[in-house]
Design a protein around this nucleic acid. Structure first.
Length: 726
DNA sequence: AGCACGCCGACT
DNA sequence: GTCGGCGTGCTC
């Protein structure tokens, strides 16, 4: 008689034991159907034991093991356990977060067509004229489809499926085939790999000559220096040895371009994507292909760090500094950090690539924990973009533009080159303001202002999705003079349209790409020179290669300087370097104009000099002096409830629970979150930190146990280890 | 998280 | 008189 210790998808920090009469060794890592309370659920067998951990009479028998899927390897189970321990998150949720949702319903789902639905024109009209006023459930579902992206049938609850059917019958939504499923792989002739620069060769030589085994490499390469080519050469050598490679990228919008490049380079090798833009069915299929070894290359976002790869020999984390590697809900893990753990576990190299490494990585390199590789020269015209800071003080801005910008744009357009105007804010204007009484439009559910949108005229909350009709008169004083203050992409677009009526404009933000769905067509339009002037948010800042783009204008960067987050300047610097890197990737040298009220600010001076090293060194000294990461390790207890006083009271009780056990750990005072009110919930946070990671984790273990035992239902809470937002 | 049990208000 | 609100408690 054996006992299976099963991870069940519940927020409890324990495994659940089940009796099992069959062969026990074959059960490890398998999915198991088990009774749980009054229902049945699918869990994962994490351990097999000869004795139960609870009283034997409480133990029920497991119903059956799922034999259709190979078991998870001991290696993956270890990774999941580590993730649960390190991030202090319930093991069951960690396990289920790591697996593709389709796995549990494997047989029914894999065979089915990828059935997804997107908003049709009739649906858009219905939303606009309020035809569904009397059917709030239908309206809510339609709104959801309209706001985010397409909705997959498999992701909907039974009631929602019925609603979807109604929407389809009325023609409000149409079926939408996931591109991954519909794509016919066009196998063009394999292009010969480009000739390597001296630096690239040197980097590859260094990696090739190093001893095998665990080795973290920090590949610091300026934008355009050919980091991707280095990755591809490394992939090539792994493939020659019949190994598998995991390539992590920060966002979905980056995958199609890289995917194309990888597919063209390695035709005949199994290459699969793993990201949230795929249907459950396809994600499951790709996941299984990786697990079986059939896929030699996995190209994925954050969650792909958990995919089983029996022949894994190399992990690449591209743009390692990017914040999207950190998951901000559910299990708050960092895929970059888990990738490093996984590489150590397997004793393989891991390459972290970035033009502007995170200070954590920079510091690790300085202490000799990572080996540094540098690419300092651009591959193409050998010219770094020229950066100019355009002061706005004393300047009369016209529609948000200093004269120097308008002139530069006009000149590039005359010379038939492309221009990118970068402004990291969606919508028309971020504030709607009453000039009579100073009222501004605010979100009823969040402590945020509503953003005015004009393409579909609405006031929208960018935090909770709340949308309402645009006020005509001030709700406070009845005044008629409501003014949009500040600029977003839509306003910049219409301003540019007035100034350059002959130019072909394309606005690229979450509203026009519909969650990256329209992005491939847009990218093609840019490449085919059907566009002269691009207006984009950070979606456009990353990784793309547009040879005809020779001028980048940055508006509104100063915004971040006011942030209270100690990481803001690190992130702004990275972002500016990244956008700047979009300019001049072809034959024409690139120019970057950054409009700012503080051209003398050290951050802008560092951007101007394009000197990452010096700036990183400065920030690092500041962090050391202030006692911030990476010199201390932090965890944030985040709590929310209906009332701020209640949330704070909960955190205060948490402080008291921690006081006796906090040796070597500093517990700060509870404070309201930056977004104090979100979605009608009032949020606050409590920072704990220690110079010793071990001490911090020992403390967290005890503290969270006490917190759970005290069943404080007054607030809902989560722990965030290595928080990015403080 | 689900899903039960359990005890107090407005409806056929 | 019942349907149903969400407080509290458990899940091997």
């Amino acid at each position: 008689m054996a006992y299976l210790r099963v991870a069940v998808d519940v927020p409890l920090p324990t495994l659940f034991d089940y009796r099992w009469d069959g062969r026990a060794d074959a059960a490890l890592g398998r999915l198991a159907l088990v009774p749980f309370g009054r229902r049945q659920t699918i869990g994962v067998v994490l351990e097999v034991a000869s004795k139960p951990a609870v009283a034997p009479e409480r133990v029920k028998p497991a119903l059956r093991l799922i034999e259709d899927i190979p078991p998870l390897s001991a290696e993956i189970l270890d990774l999941l356990r580590f993730c649960s321990d390190y991030y202090h998150h319930p093991i069951g949720e960690v396990v289920h977060n790591a697996l593709p949702q389709g796995l549990r319903a494997i047989r029914s789902s894999v065979r089915k067509q990828a059935a997804a639905f997107a908003l049709a024109e009739a649906g858009e009209a219905a939303l606009a004229d309020g035809a569904l006023r009397r059917a709030p459930a239908l309206a809510a579902l339609l709104e959801r489809i309209a706001n985010c992206q397409s909705v997959y049938l498999a992701n909907l609850a039974a009631a929602e499926r019925r609603h979807l059917k109604v929407l389809r019958d009325r023609g409000y939504v149409r079926e939408w085939i996931c591109p991954e499923a519909a794509r016919e792989a066009p196998q063009s002739a394999v292009a010969p790999p480009p000739v390597l620069t001296q630096e690239q060769s040197a980097v590859l030589r260094a990696i090739a000559q190093s001893a095998s085994g665990f080795r973290p490499w920090l590949l610091q390469g300026v934008t355009g220096s050919g980091k991707t080519e280095v990755y591809l050469r490394l992939v090539d050598s792994v493939l020659r040895g019949r190994g598998q490679v995991l390539l992590l990228v920060p966002e979905i919008s980056l995958t199609p371009q890289l995917e194309e490049r990888v597919r063209n380079r390695f035709p005949g090798h199994g290459i699969v994507m793993l990201h949230s833009g795929l249907s459950n069915e396809i994600r499951t299929r790709n996941w299984l292909a990786a697990q079986s070894g059939e896929a030699a290359i996995v190209l994925g976002t954050r969650s792909a760090v958990f995919v089983p790869m029996p022949q894994l020999q190399l992990i690449v984390v591209d743009e390692e500094h990017d914040a999207s590697y950190k998951q901000l809900d559910a299990v708050r893990y960092c895929a970059r950090d888990l990738a490093i753990w996984r590489a150590r576990q397997r004793a393989i190299p891991v390459v972290l690539g970035s033009a502007t490494p995170s200070l954590e990585s920079f510091y690790a390199a300085q202490r000799g924990r990572y080996a540094v590789l540098r690419l300092t020269q651009r591959v193409t015209s050998h010219v770094h973009p020229r950066i100019t800071l355009v002061p706005t003080t004393g300047e009369r801005l016209i529609e948000g533009f200093a004269a120097a910008l308008t002139r530069a744009i006009a000149e590039r357009l005359r010379n038939d080159q492309q221009v990118l105007v970068f402004i990291n804010r969606r919508g028309y204007s971020p504030v709607l303001y009453c000039s009579a009484c100073t009222w501004t439009a605010g979100c009823p559910r969040c402590s945020a202002r509503l953003v005015l949108h004009t393409t579909r005229p609405r006031l929208v909350c960018h935090h909770c999705g709340h949308a309402e009709a645009v006020a005509i008169t001030c709700p406070q004083c009845g005044g008629l003079d409501l003014q949009p203050i500040g600029h977003g992409t839509q306003r910049i677009e219409s301003a540019l349209h007035r100034v350059f009526p002959q130019a072909r404009l394309l606005r690229i933000d979450r509203d026009t790409t519909q969650g990256a769905r329209h992005w491939p067509q847009m990218r093609r339009a840019i490449e085919d020179r059907q566009v002269d002037l691009l207006i984009g948010t950070q979606l456009l800042a990353k990784g793309h290669d547009f040879p005809a783009l020779s001028l980048v204008c940055v508006l509104n960067a100063d915004q971040s300087l006011y942030s209270t987050d100690f990481r803001a300047s690190e992130q702004l610097f990275a972002q500016l370097m990244q956008v700047a890197g979009r300019a001049g990737r072809g034959e024409v040298p690139g120019d970057v104009l950054i409009q700012t009220a503080f051209p003398a600010h050290p951050l802008y001076q560092a951007v101007y000099a394009q000197s990452y090293e010096a700036f990183a060194q400065t920030l690092l000294s500041e962090r050391r002096a202030a006692g911030f990461p990476p010199f201390v390790h932090q965890a944030m207890l985040r709590a929310e409830s209906g009332k701020m006083a209640q949330t704070i009271a909960f955190l205060e009780s948490a402080v008291r629970l921690g006081e006796g056990i906090s040796e070597g750990v500093t517990i700060f005072d509870p404070a309201p979150a930056v977004m104090a009110r979100l979605n009608g919930r009032e949020r606050a946070q409590l920072l704990v930190q220690s110079s010793s990671r071990t001490r911090l984790h020992r403390f967290l273990d005890q503290w969270l146990t006490a917190l759970r035992a005290n069943a404080a239902t007054s607030a809902r809470w989560v722990i965030d280890v290595d928080p990015l937002e403080v």
